[in-house]
């Protein structure tokens, strides 16, 4: 920070740095800080469930109870939102929920990196799901899957218009799914950083009055961290619930 002038830079926390340079066939496949935190998340998820499932006791230990609760809550979410038929796709939904959740929550550790704050990550997840779910719909129902774009009870005159709208709004789904998660994570972390800069700027100003005033952004940040932890869990849930809803659409054609 330059002397006497507050330089606010909330965006540099999202910069991707390569940790190991690696390229294959002209493509840059460097292992970055984003990759590191994804690896950490996967290792922690695997560790959590391996430890939780290690001693399968009738009276569960704390970690076993936590693992069972996590499993049950996602299983219920899939059953409630996508129907019992969707339970065969439970493993992928479970994996996605925890990948997003751990990405969001790991990002709350100061100095860490939030890989879900990058649209390339969320869009890749959303597009993969969208393409798989659409293919699943065609595999299940064949060409009849397209009938969901043709609502009943619409006058023939405006039917082509409505069908076009339905198709376009279907295509927007992965984008809204990706942007919702990415924007929430990005905005939250930027806000935390801006208030942290305020606190540092005021507390290093040298004036007693301003230094006292500097406690306000600190208090604000404490509240914001609570809010952001809630948002981290909520956004992982919303991402998963919407995936389930889209999956239900592919499995069940309602008319």
């Amino acid at each position: 920070m330059s002397e006497g002038k507050l330089h606010i830079d909330p965006i540099s926390q999202f910069a991707i740095h390569p940790l190991f340079e690696f390229s294959l066939g002209g493509y840059n496949l460097a292992y970055t800080n984003s990759s590191l935190f994804m690896t950490l998340a996967v290792a922690m998820i695997a560790g959590f469930f391996l430890l939780g499932g290690k001693h399968r006791e009738l009276v569960p230990s704390r970690i076993q109870a936590a693992g069972e609760m996590a499993y049950e809550s996602i299983a219920n979410m899939v059953r409630d939102n996508a129907g019992p038929d969707a339970m065969r796709y439970f493993p992928i939904i479970f994996a996605i929920f925890f990948l997003v959740l751990f990405g969001n929550v790991l990002g709350m550790i100061p100095g860490s990196f939030t890989y879900t704050s990058h649209i390339i990550v969320t869009l890749t997840l959303a597009l993969t799901l969208f393409i798989c779910i659409t293919l699943l719909g065609f595999a299940r129902h064949g060409v009849h899957f397209l009938s969901r774009f043709v609502p009943h009870g619409v006058p023939a005159l405006i039917l082509p218009f409505i069908v076009a709208l339905e198709v376009l709004s279907y295509l927007v789904r992965p984008l809204t799914l990706a942007v919702r998660l990415f924007a929430n994570m990005l905005a939250g972390h930027m806000m935390l950083k801006v208030f942290a800069y305020f606190a540092v700027g005021l507390m290093t100003s040298g004036s007693i009055g301003l230094m006292a005033l500097g406690t306000l952004p600190v208090l604000m940040n404490v509240a914001l961290i609570g809010l952001e932890l809630f948002v981290a869990v909520l956004q992982a849930m919303i991402f998963t619930i919407l995936t389930c809803v889209y999956l239900r659409d592919a499995l069940v054609i309602e008319h």
Binding site: R148, P151, G153, Y170, V252, H255
Partner: peptide, 13 residues
């Protein structure tokens, strides 16, 4: 209505 076209069907009936 999150499922495509469900809302219209329900509303019209």
């Amino acid at each position: 209505a999150d499922a495509l076209s469900v809302g219209l069907v329900k509303k019209d009936r």
